[in-house]
Design a protein around this nucleic acid. Structure first.
Length: 931
RNA sequence: GCCCCGGUGGUGGAAUUGGUAGACACGCAGGACUUAAAAUCCUGUGUCUUCGCGGACGUACGGGUUCAAGUCCCGUCUGGGGUACCA
């Protein structure tokens, strides 16, 4: 019988679905193991071969862990809110719900064909009201919480109200309450608080709530009609669609992720994630330690506060620079400079994000006309305005030390400001002065009064203590991380469960959830620029009276807790039962793309810590181990048209002509050879074209690009499954190379893995009919088997799937050579292979007479005894170069080996009568003679 | 600019702790079977040199440590990704 993969695969997929073979049990004696894939956004284009790469890897691990006796949770779902379905809705009027459902159906069909062992009973969809009810619920918990710096965790807002009622609040003294994360507020007493009206109380609490409504400069994307988070912007344009982004001051819902900055940073060290990913998060969080320092403004009682990481260079300050948005700009500007400053500030504020990035090297600024006093020398220091200083970071003002900061240096050079050197570079570093500044944190202080002669590190300490003694500043930590903007002015997202009464936002009660997304007539903003939900406003009101919030949640809301919902996906009374959450704990293995490094993976860590703080779950990190699968790029094929003629020239001859390259559908190209007839059919306009061939073939050009419809280079898993079967697809995707590595898709080697499966089949069906022997295996056969078991186990444990496939090939090659069809060998081999190629493994397992799925079989143990060789093949080298090998008994000791090698006649040849200076024998490894 | 990860045959890649570089697969060449093709099987395949035995070279480049380096150290070049006035 032939290896009929189509029949085998569809049969077993039906069997698994019918018997719920892969349903996880919520408890039991087996240890648990949770394998999670980053769930997909179901796009209209369907899956291409790049998407399942990570799913195949996680499926192999899941199946392997089941064989190893684990209770495995391996779920799948859909991140089903998002922009593409909404953009499509705007164009066509079709409800995004319908588009989304169609896309999900298509995804499901494709996923099923690959034979994944998902527990589909636990599927989640973020756009289902039963799901987003709990996303809204979590939002409300966050809204109703504040961050207590002294206990270092989130607490219910009531505990804060309690403090206000009894002690009041004073931002200057109350470090524990503010923790440097909130804005300055007018101090008030407990009595004051009780006397405040509802609105005032609400406004004050907004400064502390972890989900809050606040005015902030946001990234506004006019084309998408919404604000975007920093991680949704790439190169100054939106990640989705590539539209320009502007800065705009808006009232917005935000999440106070900055409260968790330190914890998000600290816990990274304990995670088994790749170093590059942890590094990306560290950079994004961007902790920097320094000090605040106040400069007194001349002829005024006001001060300018700056943040610096180099207080040691304070004697090198030659000017102070303010951000154009700084609140003191107006009051500091003297009459003479007023016109220039106003013009500059207006211009700076209106520059879009993209313009700022485009002329990053263009130095602009203006003098205010005012001066501050140097806190130690008392000398006057001019105050400038420059847009290289960011309003949102630190205090929005810097002390400029041009000799030791390259940005200050460029500014000083450009405007002819003095450059004062205060750190002498260590001898091995070139001194500054000529071109550029000396930024390094090493060297000795000079021209710096009481700091002279100190090393930079000591000088920093001494400067901070001097500053603190003088009461003009204190040691401080700053983070680059910003609070996450949480509102989106879009339709297809979770409604934010808030309504407004007398201009005060109130969260809904739990029993009012879910707040279901209302129907609207159009998916566009209203005429006066309100978000689409405002279109429903006339009938969509809380208690029939109060307006709901009209913005919706961002894409990352639903994905920030979905790993918890899988534990208890259908529970209607809680987001996840505490018992189940305690049982499944955290994700043991999480696989997904590295593009989520600073978005999803920070947010999900944030929400997990929050839920832990409030006692809903026991863990504070979502995933113990995380692997980033590489991207599979497309490999585009090209034909070359001779300009101005209906003539196509093969790639190797194209240099003889003036040509333009045209993308050609990769499905009609095989090993770079174009199927000319198919091409004529595909492009009707070329049906009469001349083809200039080389060696009778039309060779296409190729280039690696992103896989996309417009480049005609999309290969779907369905195409491959149709031609070779899903087991071949699974093996081939793994065989391509290391999981983490990005690589272009190329089917050139697929026949190799397909041939491997056929060879395996032949071990059972060698003579045409199924034939298996119950004979005792030979020593050699056992060695082959156990070597394979050992390698495969090691490979899976270190996620090296490509080498597993090679090892299976070696094994089957050896068994084929040995003409082995023995049950004692083939049965364990099938179990090893079943995580990789489950359909063929199940089928042959059944042929062997088993009635239960192979997934219930225990993974075979490997026995070291079968691997021990009687002989060792010693490479003998002279001066490190191997000249010959010698097969010697393994029982020989190192000195015995040396003696035999010395006595060998070939050795004599290479020694040429000389006595070796030294002989190294590494037992059971190698012999090296130094001549 | 800064940070991270890479660079090995014609190609994808292997070499887990410093111990026979190139496993496995593709491609290519030759052969068997076949009227023919497909499928399958066998042999060869890093480069240079040699009729052959053999020899020399070889993991981006230049140095170093070591009996021994793809692997460790220093420097350079180069590709990819992230990030960017973060004081």
């Amino acid at each position: 019988m032939e290896y009929n993969f189509k029949e085998i695969e569809s049969n077993w997929q039906a069997y698994w679905a019918k018997h719920k073979t892969f349903a996880a049990k919520d408890g039991g004696d087996k240890p648990k193991y949770y394998v999670l894939d980053m769930f997909p956004y179901p796009s209209g284009a369907g899956l291409h071969v790049g998407h399942p790469l990570g799913y195949i890897a996680s499926d192999i691990v899941s199946r392997y862990k089941r064989h190893k006796g684990f209770n495995v949770l391996h779920p799948m779902g859909y991140d089903s809110f998002g922009l593409p379905a909404e953009q499509y809705a705007i164009q066509t009027g079709q409800h995004p719900k319908i588009t989304t459902e169609q896309n999900i159906a298509r995804y499901r069909e494709q996923l099923d064909k690959i034979g994944f062992s998902f527990d589909w009973d636990r599927e989640v969809r973020t756009s289902n009201p039963e799901y987003y009810k709990w996303t809204q619920w979590i939002f409300i918990q966050i809204f109703n919480s504040w961050y207590n710096k002294s206990t270092n965790k989130a607490e219910p807002i009531e505990t804060l109200i309690n403090v206000f009622e009894t002690k009041g609040f004073n931002a200057k003294l109350d470090d524990t309450l503010t923790g440097d994360i909130e804005k300055d507020l007018e101090p008030f007493t407990g009595e004051d608080w009780k006397a405040f009206d509802e609105k005032k109380k609400s406004d004050i609490l907004m400064n502390f709530r972890l989900a809050y409504l606040g005015e902030s400069v946001v990234n506004w994307c006019p084309q998408l009609g919404t604000v975007l988070a920093n991680d949704e912007i790439k190169d100054g344009v939106s990640e989705r669609g590539g539209y320009p982004v502007e800065r705009k001051l808006m009232k917005q819902w935000s999440m106070r992720i900055t409260a968790y900055a330190q914890r998000l940073l600290d816990r990274l060290d304990t995670l088994d994630w790749t170093e590059s990913l942890k590094e990306a998060q560290r950079n994004w969080i961007g902790k920097s330690e320094g000090t605040s320092l106040k400069f007194k403004i001349q002829n005024s009682d006001k001060t300018i506060e700056v943040f610096t990481t180099r207080p040691d260079t304070v004697f090198g300050v030659s000017f102070v620079t303010l951000a154009p948005e700084h609140e003191l700009v107006e009051s500091l500007t003297t009459a003479d400079n007023k016109a220039a400053v106003e013009a500059y500030v207006t211009q700076a504020k209106n520059r879009s994000e993209r313009e700022r990035q485009a002329d990053i090297n263009k130095i602009t600024g203006v003098f205010t006309g005012s001066y501050v006093e140097h806190p130690f020398t008392g000398k006057q220091v001019p105050i400038w305005i420059g847009d290289y200083v960011l309003a949102g970071y630190g205090t929005g003002a810097v002390m400029a030390v041009p000799a030791h900061d390259s940005r200050d240096y460029s500014f000083a050079k450009h405007f002819g400001l003095p450059i004062l050197e205060v750190v002498a570079a260590t001898s091995n570093v070139t001194l500054s002065g000529v071109e550029g500044s000396y930024d390094a944190k090493e060297g000795k202080l000079i021209n710096s009064d009481f700091l002279n002669g100190l090393e930079v590190k000591e000088a920093i300490k001494k400067a901070i203590s001097a500053i603190e003694t003088k009461g003009i500043g204190k040691g401080k930590v700053n983070f680059r991380l910003r609070d996450a903007v949480f509102g989106r002015q879009r339709y297809w997202g979770e409604p934010i469960p808030v309504y407004y009464k007398n201009d005060i936002p109130y969260a809904l009660n739990e029993n009012e959830l879910p707040l279901v997304l209302p129907e609207v007539d159009k998916y566009l903003p209203t005429e006066d620029g309100e978000p689409p939900l405002a279109r429903a406003a006339s009938s969509w009101k809380h208690e029939g009276k109060y307006d709901y919030e009209h913005s919706t949640m961002p894409g990352w809301a639903g994905s920030s807790w979905y790993f918890l919902r899988y534990m208890d996906s259908t529970n209607a009374s809680v987001f996840a039962d505490k018992k189940l959450a305690d049982y499944w704990q955290q994700v043991d293995l999480y696989i997904g793309g590295s593009e989520h490094a600073t978005g999803h993976l920070l947010y999900v860590r944030f929400w997990t810590k929050f839920l832990k703080d409030l006692g809903y779950i026991a863990i504070d990190e979502p995933a113990k181990k995380l692997i980033n699968q590489g991207m599979i790029q497309g490999r585009s094929s090209f034909v070359y048209r001779v300009n101005g003629e209906n003539k196509l020239v093969s790639s190797g001859l194209k240099n003889n002509y003036e040509v333009s390259a045209l993308h050609v559908d990769v499905s009609i190209v095989n090993n770079d050879i174009l199927d000319v007839e198919a091409f004529k059919k595909w492009r009707d306009d070329f049906k009469n074209a001349d083809f200039i061939l080389e060696d009778g073939k039309y060779i296409c050009g190729a280039e690696v690009e992103k896989m996309s419809k417009s480049k005609y280079n999309v290969v779907t898993p369905d195409d491959i499954a149709e031609k070779f079967g899903s087991d071949t697809l699974r093996l081939y995707e793994m065989f391509l190379g290391p999981l983490e590595q990005s690589k272009p898709w190329n089917t050139n080697g697929i026949t190799g893995v397909h041939g491997f499966l056929k060879k395996l089949w032949k071990l059972f069906y060698g003579s045409g009919a199924f034939a298996i022997s119950n004979d005792e295996p030979t020593k050699g056969e056992l060695k082959t088997l156990h070597k394979t078991i050992k390698k495969i186990t090691e490979d899976i444990e270190r996620f090296s799937f490509n080498t597993s496939i090679s090892n299976f090939m070696i094994c089957v090659n050896e068994l084929t050579d040995a003409k082995c069809n023995k049950r004692a060998i083939l049965e364990p081999l099938l179990i090893c292979l079943s995580p990789y190629a489950p359909h063929i493994a199940e089928e042959l397992w059944k042929q062997l007479g088993h009635t239960e799925s192979i997934s219930t079989a225990a993974f075979p143990d490997f026995n070291e005894a079968f691997l021990v060789d009687d002989n060792v093949n010693y490479p003998v080298s002279f001066n490190g170069k191997v000249k010959f090998t010698l097969e010697l008994a393994a029982t020989l000791t190192a000195p015995e080996v040396e003696a035999i090698v010395r006595a060998n006649e070939q050795t004599a040849k290479y020694l040429d009568g000389k006595e070796p200076k030294k002989v190294i024998v590494v037992h059971k490894k190698i012999v090296n003679m130094v001549v």
